[in-house]
Simulated scan of single mutants.
Amino acid sequence: MRRLLLVVLSVLAVALGAFVVGMRRKSPVLQDRLRQFSKRVMTPVVLPTAGNAGQGNGVVHHRGRTSGREYATPVTPMPVADGFLIGLPYTARVDWARNILAAGGATVEFDGASHEVTDPVVLSYEEVAGLLPRSVRLGAKVFALNEFLRVRAV
């Protein structure tokens, strides 16, 4: 039994290590699979409560660049003095970020309130590190989170 536990823990450690390395290197295969898992499995679970008071996550409401369709995407906005920072673990090439950049704004639901936001800009980790809580800085370093979307509240 002890040997089985050791094998299971070893497999988990290797999988976690591979995950961290894949995220740090921005592996297209890993990121595409993770995005699909998030879209199909996590979004339906998280979206109903995202943005509510006391929740750590929020929702960004945006319009498709070509379809014109309205979308709601769960995100983890970090309040800053004049708006929000949103980490971009899959880079700024994700559709929701491209939609916000193209439109010049969106609506962010966070902590029970709705915020119209404008002036989206992609910033590097170095540009925002001083605004981030220590735990986010640590996670950003581990996973090589190098891009953040900054939006200003109207």
Rank of each mutant, 00 (worst) to 15 (best):
M1A: 11
R3N: 10
V7E: 09
V7K: 14
V8A: 14
V11S: 09
L12G: 03
A13V: 08
A15N: 03
G17F: 10
G17Y: 07
A18Y: 11
A18T: 09
F19R: 09
V20A: 12
V20G: 12
V20P: 15
G22A: 15
M23T: 08
K26Q: 11
S27H: 06
S27V: 01
Q31D: 13
Q31W: 11
D32W: 07
D32T: 11
R33V: 06
Q36D: 10
S38Y: 13
K39W: 04
R40F: 05
P44E: 01
P44I: 04
L47M: 14
T49R: 12
T49M: 14
A50Q: 06
G51E: 09
A53L: 15
G54C: 10
G58K: 00
G58Q: 05
V60E: 04
H62Q: 02
H62I: 01
R65V: 00
T66Q: 12
G68R: 09
G68V: 05
R69D: 02
R69A: 07
E70H: 15
T73V: 05
P74C: 05
V80Q: 04
G83F: 01
F84W: 03
G87E: 05
G87L: 06
L88G: 03
Y90G: 01
T91Y: 08
A92T: 01
A92E: 05
R93P: 01
R93Y: 00
R93L: 06
V94W: 02
A97G: 05
A97R: 01
A97H: 04
N99T: 01
A102Y: 04
G104A: 01
A106R: 02
E109M: 08
E109I: 01
F110A: 02
F110L: 00
D111W: 11
A113K: 14
A113L: 14
H115G: 02
E116G: 12
T118W: 03
D119W: 01
D119Q: 15
P120I: 03
V121S: 03
S124H: 03
V128D: 03
G130F: 04
R134H: 10
R134Y: 07
S135C: 12
S135W: 13
R137L: 14
L138S: 10
K141Q: 15
V142H: 07
L145M: 14
N146L: 13
N146M: 12
L149S: 05
V151E: 08
V151H: 00
R152E: 06
A153W: 08
A153D: 10
